[in-house]
């Protein structure tokens, strides 16, 4: 029985319209099904290279992007498919990129690890841990100097919090009071090394104190908690009050990449986190507050399944890049 006192309702229910909430759930399901479709395509040999799946982390990506418009920027990570979808990308062009096709977001030059959607403000995933942090600060500097009002959300993982780039970026964002929100998806492991072993502080959010900015740790599998925290940080950034560090504690169900033998964590640990699956949690919240009926959920799932199937088909049917164009786009063609 939903609580009738609005004060006690979850932030998301209070703050977003039913359409927004259903749209957010749809994106979370879309990310889950996209990742499963990518994994399946990889297993079938349709995708080469490697990939880093974000199954289990959907609430972080979608929750964090709720506060952002297409004019706002994000920088993303090697585990960035979810961020890309959350920021509004077309999954057909994403699959096309993974399939190495000319119709992909990067014309088949970047693949999974460099997926980007500049028109929607996604400045790109990054193959270098911590690589996006200073770039996000630069984007925030542009926004401040050019007066665009845009905020940059910088996604990174727990592994990046021990890179020098993290510390340099947070310090500069703070001394210049730039409109950037640092969103750390702490999925507990930098490849195989746990944060307990790799990181001197108990919570990555504690690092914020060193850079005189707010630092908040939230349940990264709780859509409402992530959205509430990021909304607050984005509002603060837009108001000119400077950056924030948000740690969303979550878990990746799959291995680090395709080479992972899962030797560094137990089946029990994985099962425990799978029981906190963010997607059904979100669906349950919407059901509990009358935003979604069972039929509505079934319809969403069917719609997403169709979208994924059509996207994979589009990728398969798309033309490959011309081999004689391999060195195009290294430099910008002169205007002449």
């Amino acid at each position: 029985m939903p609580d009738s006192n609005p004060e006690n309702l979850p932030f998301a229910i209070r703050h977003y319209s039913p359409d927004q909430l259903r749209g957010a759930l749809r994106k979370m399901i879309l990310i889950r099904k996209f990742e499963e479709g990518a994994e399946d395509s990889y297993t079938r040999g349709l995708i080469h290279g490697t990939m880093h799946l974000s199954i289990g982390q959907e609430a972080c990506a979608v929750g964090a992007c709720m506060a952002l418009s297409d004019d706002d920027k994000i920088t993303s990570t090697h585990r960035g498919h979810g961020h890309c979808i959350a920021k509004g990308a077309d999954v057909a062009r994403m699959f096309a990129e993974f399939f190495g096709k000319e119709t992909g977001y990067c014309k088949g030059r970047g693949g999974s690890m460099h997926i980007a959607d500049v028109a929607k403000g996604n400045l790109g995933a990054n193959g270098i841990v911590g690589g996006g942090l200073p770039i996000a600060v630069g984007a925030a500097l542009s926004a401040k100097r050019l007066g665009t009002g845009a905020v940059t959300a910088c996604f990174f993982g727990d592994g990046a919090n021990n890179e020098g780039a993290f510390h340099e970026a947070l310090n500069m964002a703070s001394i210049w009071a730039l409109p950037v929100v640092f969103v750390c998806e702490n999925n507990k492991y930098g490849m195989s090394m746990s944060t307990e072993r790799s990181t001197a502080v108990a919570a990555i959010a504690d690092r914020a104190a060193a850079y005189a900015m707010p630092g908040v740790s939230v349940d990264g599998n709780d859509f409402s908690a992530v959205a509430e925290t990021v909304e607050g940080a984005v509002a603060r950034a837009r108001a000119g009050a400077g950056p924030s560090l948000i740690e969303a504690v979550t878990y990746r169900w799959r291995g680090h990449s395709k080479s992972d033998r899962n030797r560094y964590r137990t089946k029990d640990e994985i099962a425990g986190w799978m029981a906190q699956d963010p997607v059904p949690r979100m669906a349950a919240m919407l059901r509990a507050h009358g935003v979604l009926e069972d039929e509505g959920l079934a319809a969403l799932e069917a719609e997403v399944a169709d979208e994924i199937a059509a996207a994979i088909q589009f990728a398969k049917d798309s033309p490959a890049p011309r081999v004689d164009h391999a060195t195009r786009d290294v430099l910008t063609p002169s205007a002449a």
Partner: peptide, 22 residues
């Protein structure tokens, strides 16, 4: 910029990417 060559260079990259000419 602070004595942060990596970060400073990265800020310049991000700024160049989004409309400034550093």
């Amino acid at each position: 910029t602070p004595i942060s060559e990596l970060g400073g260079a990265g800020v310049a990259v991000g700024a160049a990417l989004t409309g400034l000419r550093p």
